[in-house]
Amino acid sequence: MSKKDNRNEEEIINEQESVQDKDNQEVESGDVKEEPTAEELIQVEKDKFLRLFAEFENYKKRTTRERIELFKTAGQELMTSLLPIVDDFERALTHIEEDNNEDELRKGVTLIYQKFYNTLEQKGLSKIETNTGDNFDAEMHEAITQIPAPSEDLKGKIIDCVEKGYKLGDKIIRYPKVVIGQ
């Protein structure tokens, strides 16, 4: 065992000497890693600060855009729930116009409808105009059915608008439901 112990001690001493030789070589060759200076540390911290500041500015801009978008469409649920009332007013006006005896009733319903619709327009609601013969656009219209086109020029075009479409600001909240010629 003594030979084994001597070998271990000799190996340890040799390893220590080799490590010291490496350190001496690094000092002589100038490869010694220096600690960063105060200016370098300041520059690193300044860089970190600038990156953090830029990230915060981007966050503020993004949240501002999201907030503006939210305010623009905040009334979407309300507007969507009021659209059937607009449809009912339009149907009532259509039936009242067919019955000419009720001029006063027609005038009253017309005034209520105009006031109601003007209020919705002030809040950002606008109609999507859809006419017979317009080209069908899948991004702007919802096709509910196709029927044989009454003429060749109406193939692939809108024949009838069953339900009007509406926008709130620039966002479509209800697509016009249309019938397309086949």
Rank of each mutant, 00 (worst) to 15 (best):
E40H: 00
T119S: 05
K72A: 06
S81A: 07
K155E: 12
K155Y: 05
S151K: 11
N8Q: 11
D103L: 14
K4C: 04
N101W: 10
T80C: 02
Q122D: 11
M79F: 10
Y166F: 15
D88T: 14
S2A: 14
R174P: 00
L105E: 14
A54Y: 09
E9F: 07
N131G: 03
V178N: 05
N58W: 03
K167C: 09
K72I: 13
E34K: 15
T37D: 01
N6Y: 09
I112E: 11
Q146Y: 09
N100C: 04
E9K: 13
R51E: 11
I144Q: 04
K33R: 10
L52M: 05
T94E: 15
P36Y: 01
R174N: 06
S29H: 09
H95V: 09
G156F: 05
M1Q: 13
K157Y: 04
T64M: 07
T110V: 04
I85W: 02
E35L: 10
V86Y: 02
E90A: 06
R62V: 03
Y113H: 15
Y113S: 09
L93T: 07
K107D: 13
Y166G: 07
L70R: 12
L82Q: 10
G156R: 12
L78R: 01
G169Y: 03
P36D: 03
G108D: 10
Q25T: 13
T132H: 05
E9C: 04
G133W: 09
N6K: 13
N58V: 08
I13G: 03
V27E: 12
M140P: 02
E102K: 14
L52T: 13
L125N: 09
D47P: 01
E40M: 00
R91H: 14
K127R: 15
N14A: 15
Y117G: 02
E45R: 00
I96L: 15
K167S: 09
R65Y: 06
R106E: 12
E40A: 00
K72C: 02
D31P: 01
E9Y: 10
L111V: 08
K123I: 06
K123V: 07
E97Y: 12
V19L: 15
E10Q: 14
M79K: 01
R91G: 08
F71W: 05
K127N: 11
K157D: 06
D170F: 02
K46G: 00
G169F: 09
T94V: 09
F116Q: 08
I13C: 03
R91Y: 12
L78I: 14
E77L: 02
N131L: 08
K123A: 13
Q182G: 06
I180R: 05
R7D: 15
E10I: 13
L41Y: 00
A38Y: 00
F89S: 04
M79V: 15
E142R: 08
V109F: 07
E142F: 05
L70D: 03
F116V: 03
L82R: 04
E90S: 08
N58S: 14
E39Y: 00
E102Q: 15
Q114G: 07
P150F: 02
T80I: 05
K155M: 10
L105F: 12
V32Y: 02
I68A: 08
G75H: 02
H95L: 15
L50H: 06
D103R: 14
I128F: 05
